[in-house]
Amino acid sequence: MILILSFRQYEQGTDPVIDWLYARKANFIRISSQDIIGRENRYDLNVNEGSLVINGIQINLDEVKVIWDRRWQDSGLILNNYPENEWPYEQLIFEHDHEINYLTNYLHECFKDKIWLSSPFHEVNKLSMLKDAAAAGLNVPASAVINNKQDLLAFFHRCHNNIISKPIHHSHYFVSEEYVYSVYTNTFNTYEAIESLPEKFFPTLFQERICGEIEIRCFYLDGQFYPMAILTDQESKEETDIKLSFGLSTTKWVPYQLPRSLEIKLEKLLRTTDNNTGSIDLIKTTSGAYYFIEVNTGGQYNAPGFRGNYYLEEKIADWLITHSC
């Protein structure tokens, strides 16, 4: 049996794979954290026998052969009608979040010996992944987490006065009615820009700016690479974060063939970090060198899938079926 852990709400990567699982008549079940947390379902997790019953349907955990950890827990699932910064709800919400995390960790433990696609036991830390990538022979940008202007100026000088800043992990949208406000990669290429910062600030990730001829988004699935080159016009190249150019008519997505030598290094990186899938960001410079930027093991595959005609949802479904037999 295939077990899919995913949101109950819209999750763009899950449903297309399920379409193929139905087409292939595969034996699978999808469970969301809402199934466990929400009150609309009746469920009983028998800790002694290792069985889970949801609405009277028993799932024998021993029958599960392969698990796709797509997206499990959504924030704000519980007690979201209460003011989270007021006594006593702040502590109440904290305690329930902790309970859910503890239960989630138990479920992961129950399945630790199964085959996973995107395992929660090997969550990628983007900073350590940069070091692992360099060890695998990949080019990586000079990177530093800095909290003060003096050291930032020294790093700026070392990087030939052209650096970027970006979140260490992630920043989501700040939605305010008709507008959203977002943190994108930002460039610092003048001393004045650095001098305008306060002497001390919260630790921030700074990197050498890699000026690219093309950026590449590549989905990886257990030894296979599905890369897309993103071609932009000169004006868009001046924008540090290519995501700001995605919607332009001048931005083109083209299927790409990575050099085999680069694939070997990327595969070494993913194997040594125990990851069998991921969405990899690469930059090819004007001088022809490839730089590894980051990998997201829970990343979306739809963009390279649809734009490159790769039918990745079918390939993921077939991978799950193959490993469930």
Partner: peptide, 17 residues
């Protein structure tokens, strides 16, 4: 002053875009 420098350089976009 308490945040990472990233929050000094945010981009405003239409939500429905």
């Amino acid at each position: 002053e308490e945040l990472s420098v990233n929050y000094r350089y945010m981009v405003q976009e239409l939500a429905n875009k």
